[in-house]
Amino acid sequence: MVLLSEIAVEPAVVGDDLSAAAAVEAMTSAGVDALVVRSADGHVLAALDEPALATLADTDAPLAELADQMPALIVLGAEPDEFSDEELTDLAEMVSATSSPAVLLVGGARPVGVVFRRSLASALSLTSMAMDATRAGNPNVPALRYVCVKCTPPSFQLLRAPEPDGRAPSCTRLFHHGVMEAVR
């Protein structure tokens, strides 16, 4: 069992109208290691660390124009704070498959933290990693992993529990993309 609040860091939140260099400066002046980029309408485009941001720093273009070069966005609800070994392993698999540097934690509709890939790796228990190819679980439970294939790069969301009405969530990056697709 891991507490998300113990492995998450507080991010600086910037608009997508800043250049990558200005975003690095904002991150440095805020004294944080994580940056969340939001569009003018309030949708999150990316959760970045300094190395990911440095790959974008070659140009003076605003971050909005560089969105297709940003790493995949993985969104996770911050509540409940307790995260089981199985959930942590699921999340680590998703981060590994997407090469995303971080996972964005949201509370309500606002970013409340970022969990870096290295923090996930440190929190993983070796005993929780199954060495067989059998996947456990109930096939009657709806999917908890979703992807927006209309986003470039793709946007992912890992639900902590199925939606009450069983529907898939809408894209967290751009609402007009509509409903996300289940990842099995």
Rank of each mutant, 00 (worst) to 15 (best):
L4G: 09
I7G: 08
V9N: 01
V9F: 02
V9A: 14
E10V: 14
E10M: 11
E10G: 07
P11H: 01
P11F: 02
A12N: 00
V13K: 03
V13E: 06
D16Q: 09
D17L: 10
L18K: 11
S19E: 06
A20H: 04
A22G: 00
A22F: 00
A23F: 08
A23V: 13
A23H: 13
V24C: 03
A26W: 02
A26R: 10
M27D: 05
M27C: 13
M27L: 15
T28D: 05
T28P: 00
G31C: 07
A34M: 15
L35G: 12
V36F: 04
S39E: 15
A40G: 11
D41S: 15
D41Y: 04
D41E: 09
V44K: 04
V44T: 15
L45S: 11
A46D: 09
A47R: 06
L48E: 12
P51L: 06
D58W: 01
D60I: 11
L63P: 11
A64C: 00
A64M: 09
L66D: 14
D68R: 13
M70G: 11
A72I: 05
L73Q: 05
G77Q: 12
G77F: 06
G77I: 03
G77A: 15
A78S: 15
D81L: 04
L88V: 04
A92V: 08
E93D: 12
M94W: 09
M94K: 08
V95G: 10
S96Q: 07
S96A: 11
S100N: 08
P101R: 03
A102H: 14
L105R: 03
L105C: 14
V106R: 15
V106C: 12
G107Q: 07
G108E: 04
A109T: 08
V112G: 11
G113K: 04
V115R: 00
R117A: 09
A121Y: 02
A123T: 03
A123N: 02
A123I: 07
T127C: 04
S128V: 03
M129C: 13
A130I: 06
M131S: 15
D132V: 13
A133G: 12
T134Q: 12
R135Q: 12
P139I: 08
N140D: 09
P142I: 10
A143K: 00
A143D: 10
A143Q: 08
R145I: 03
R145T: 06
Y146A: 01
C148N: 10
C151N: 02
T152A: 08
F156A: 12
F156N: 12
R160F: 00
R160M: 03
D165V: 01
D165Y: 01
G166Q: 01
G166V: 05
C171E: 04
C171I: 05
R173S: 15
H176S: 13
H176A: 07
E181Y: 00
V183D: 01
V183Q: 13
R184F: 14
